[in-house]
């Protein structure tokens, strides 16, 4: 991607409260560059509840409403229906939720909105734990990962919930996984989501330097390694078409390299790393990538 061709218009203000190197702040910045100012954000409890600024200041230049943790997709349904009734059908109504608000407490509302084919875009920025409350395990926490509620590591039998396929099973307009470490992929998918009509879901892997126990400078690198090692697969599913892997790593990086540069995995022994590698291989085989 030629970054010189990316718009200079920013829809975020400086001075937000994201931690240094936060993947969620960066993802929002670019998502809005694609979505533009005809966009409304609905935000359940998440790191972004803080990032967005303290009353009466705001980090976003588009309308934003904060909502209770479990309600994002339902609130967005109400917002979209209101806009439709006001003759503003074209407004992008976007849920911007973390993994907790999506995989766990917000899943029911999400499923409801997806099933009703609500005309909204649901973005989950997945930093793989309850980071805002201090790094507690969620159902998006990968096997093996340390969190404050899995102090000896998330048990390997707790496989990360397969959100992509859960949403796909509702047969919505568009479902994708992406990460800002792959700018082309990210921009194309947000563009597709923006142009599709109906329920759209984008699952973004989003590095959290404090929660992943990595140096803030390695934030983008971590997201990239997750993809290059096959831990996170970039995919999409357009309604009526088969699931498509949108990026195939050239040569798979051993998962060891991804895991062991992160503090949250540093307790893993060689056997556990190998077991995780096998789990990843099996997943990749099921996708025809191995």
């Amino acid at each position: 991607m030629d970054f010189r061709e990316v718009t200079n218009i920013e829809y975020m203000n400086q001075g937000d409260f994201a931690c240094p190197g936060c993947g969620a702040g960066l993802s929002m910045r670019h998502a809005l560059k694609v979505l533009g100012d005809n966009t409304v954000i609905v935000m359940p409890a998440s790191c972004w509840s803080i990032i967005s600024g303290v009353f009466p200041t705001a980090a976003l230049q588009v309308p934003l409403m904060h909502v209770p943790f479990a309600t994002a997709a339902a609130v967005a349904s109400g917002v979209k229906n209101a806009f439709r009734k006001k003759g503003q059908e074209d407004v992008n109504v976007v849920c911007w939720a973390g993994d907790g608000g999506t995989f766990d407490i917000g899943l029911q509302a999400l499923s409801g909105a997806a099933e009703r084919k609500e005309d909204i875009i649901y973005v989950c920025y997945d930093n793989e734990a309850y980071m805002n409350t201090g790094i507690q395990r969620s159902s998006a926490t990968p096997p093996g990962a340390w969190t404050t509620t899995t102090p000896t590591g998330n048990p390997l039998i707790y496989e990360k919930k397969d959100m992509f396929n859960i949403v796909v099973s509702h047969n919505p307009a568009y479902v994708a996984t992406s990460t800002i470490a792959y700018p082309d992929d990210f921009y194309q998918k947000f563009e597709k989501a923006k142009n599709a009509k109906g329920f759209r879901f984008i699952h973004l892997l989003s590095a959290c330097p404090p929660g992943w126990r990595i140096d803030s400078k390695d934030s983008v690198k971590a997201m990239r390694l997750a993809v290059e090692s096959g831990v996170f697969v970039l995919m999409e599913k357009e309604q009526g078409k088969p699931v498509k892997v949108t990026y195939k790593p050239k040569g798979l990086v051993p998962v060891r390299e991804y895991l062991l540069f992160q503090g949250r995995y540093k307790h893993l022994n060689e056997d556990t790393v190998n077991e995780i590698q096998i789990m990843i291989n099996e997943h990749l085989m099921s996708l025809g990538l191995l």
């Binding site: 937000d16 009353f55 200041t57 705001a58």
Partner: peptide, 17 residues
Amino acid sequence: FPISITTTEVNLTGSWR
């Protein structure tokens, strides 16, 4: 109203550095 109407640019986050 719990409305935010000004910008976060009052937070000079450079001081975190």
